[in-house]
């Protein structure tokens, strides 16, 4: 069975735990955590990931900057990216999607919804 590696880039440990709980329903999943955009990029380069979950408002480097850098790289330009954020505005979503995000989820999150989006992007039935 395939192993799925997911990178969670989120400055809040509470939020990271909530996302990990949601993803635990997927078998053979491995989660790597990062606290900001720079840490996230370092971890992304150090391993092979199937999907990235990223927050927008983070210290050091925000999520939007991180996404734009990921999409500029040929290796990662097709990796699925999910944004989980407090920013619920239409313009925020449009900006993030234009930068190359595949899905946009607003907080507070619903674990089943996050799970469904991840499964869809990873083509897990």
């Amino acid at each position: 069975m395939d192993e799925y590696k997911i990178l969670i880039v989120e400055d809040s440990p509470t939020m990271r735990q909530l996302i990990i709980f949601a993803l635990k329903r997927i078998r053979n999943i491995k989660v790597v955590e990062a606290g900001d955009g720079v840490d996230g990029l370092k971890k992304l380069l150090s391993d092979t990931f199937h999907l990235v979950i990223v927050d927008i408002n983070m210290p050091v480097m925000d999520g939007l900057k991180m996404i734009s850098l990921i999409r500029k790289d040929n290796v990662y330009k097709n990796i699925p990216i999910i944004i989980i954020t407090t920013e619920g505005g239409k313009e925020d979503k449009e900006r993030a999607m234009a930068l190359g995000a595949n899905a946009y989820i607003t907080k507070p999150i619903s674990a089943p919804y996050v799970l469904n989006v991840v499964k869809e992007l990873l083509n897990i039935s």
Partner: peptide
């Protein structure tokens, strides 16, 4: 779990803020 994960006063306040933002919205 997060609330009781530390004995640092500032961290506890930060965790409460996180819970109210992320879980309550």
């Amino acid at each position: 779990f997060q609330l009781h994960s530390t004995l640092d006063f500032k961290e506890v306040l930060q965790i409460i803020l996180e819970i109210v933002i992320n879980l309550i919205g």
